[in-house]
Amino acid sequence: MKILLTGGSGLIGTRILETNKGHQFATPDLPDFDITDKDLVARTFQDYQPDIVFHLAAYTNTQAAQSSPDKSHAINVVGTSNVLEACQKVGSRVLFFSTDFVFDGEKGSYTEEDGPNPIGEYAKHKKEAENLVSQSGLDYLIIRTAYPYRAVYELKSDCVRWMLPKLASKEKLTLVDDQYLTPTFVDELVSSVYLLVDKKAEGIYHVTGSECLSFLDMGKIVCEVWGFDKSLISGISLEEFNAKMDRVNVNPKNSCLSTDKLKKDFGLVLSDFRTGVSLMKKQLEV
């Protein structure tokens, strides 16, 4: 299968490439490949003629998107539109990666049937991009995931790795205790992606870890798995944290995703957080 991967240098994209099993990948990326350049996107797709496009390239800084909404819109919406138009011209399928942030967080345990109601600019743009994908007329798969973490990735931290050096040096951490999410071990996300693509899954699927936790819950589990002192961590409300950090509130209070559809259709259940970080720890010890 010929796959064109946008965002191939990212946290998830690099792991997709590292675990490739026989597929032919093209991985155009910045600075040479800019998805906001419509003509460049079209030429790249014509040259490679992919069977499917894995579209991961995105502007994901939720706080910066509030102050620079035009940049977020250009990459997340216009860029996606350019990718879809190029897919239409070469007749390729598309896999679009989306986010739990498309929901407002008022309910939790969101299914694929629940209607999105994004509250921040980034989330609004991802939802707009989802609409473009679903209305494109292409064979499409949208995967919504949340808070990915992995053992090694040098270009960007994640919801687990940022804690490790701080806790190892006995630095005290204050973690939000009333925002709930479903953290996802990247290795299992990627293996699920390959299975869904091979099975020609269509529509929307939630692919996340199987446990709904607060950041404080996650910190306690990280301490237990690594043997750090749990007294180093304490809780704070999301409202207090945003005020302390002078942040705009764009985080859903409970964006936990239900993966019942994934289990029903394909028998897939990703690990709980303790299992995921234990696997991550083993990889770091090799």
Rank of each mutant, 00 (worst) to 15 (best):
T6Q: 11
N20I: 00
S169P: 04
L257M: 06
S9I: 06
L5P: 15
L195A: 12
E128S: 10
V133I: 12
T208A: 05
S210H: 12
Q135K: 10
G120C: 04
V250N: 05
S271L: 07
T27M: 03
V94M: 06
D104N: 08
V286F: 02
S9H: 14
L17Y: 15
T99Q: 06
T182Y: 06
F228E: 02
G235H: 11
V197C: 11
N61R: 10
K166Q: 11
L216Q: 02
S234V: 04
E171T: 15
E239N: 11
V160E: 05
L141G: 09
G7H: 08
N254L: 03
E18F: 01
S214G: 15
F101C: 06
F228H: 11
K38A: 12
K170M: 15
P31K: 15
A65S: 12
D260Q: 05
A65I: 06
L132N: 11
P50Y: 01
D178E: 11
F241V: 04
E18M: 05
K172P: 08
T184W: 12
W226E: 07
L11C: 07
D139I: 10
D229I: 02
F45M: 10
N82R: 13
P252V: 03
D217F: 00
L4K: 14
Y140F: 10
L232M: 05
E239C: 00
W226G: 09
E18P: 00
F241I: 00
K38T: 09
V152Y: 13
L257P: 04
M245E: 07
F33L: 08
S210R: 08
H206S: 01
K230P: 13
E18H: 07
G115R: 15
L175V: 12
K127G: 03
D198N: 14
D272L: 06
G79D: 02
V186A: 13
I16N: 09
F45A: 13
E239K: 14
T182K: 08
R93L: 01
L5H: 13
K199A: 06
I236F: 07
S234E: 05
A65N: 04
V90C: 09
T44M: 02
I12E: 01
A74Y: 01
K89G: 15
S255C: 07
I236E: 06
S255A: 07
L175I: 10
Y110I: 02
Y140T: 11
M1F: 03
L11N: 05
R247Q: 14
V190F: 01
T182E: 12
S191F: 03
G13S: 05
G276M: 01
M218Y: 00
S109L: 11
D29N: 12
V77F: 04
V41K: 09
D34I: 03
A64E: 07
F273S: 00
F45T: 09
G219W: 06
T275K: 09
R144L: 09
T36E: 08
P116A: 05
V90L: 02
A74N: 15
Y194F: 13
S192W: 02
E240Y: 02
F54H: 03
S210V: 05
G115C: 15
C159L: 15
Q66A: 08
L279Q: 09
S136P: 08
V77S: 04
F101Y: 14
A151V: 14
C159N: 15
K156Q: 14
V225H: 05
F266G: 08
D32G: 03
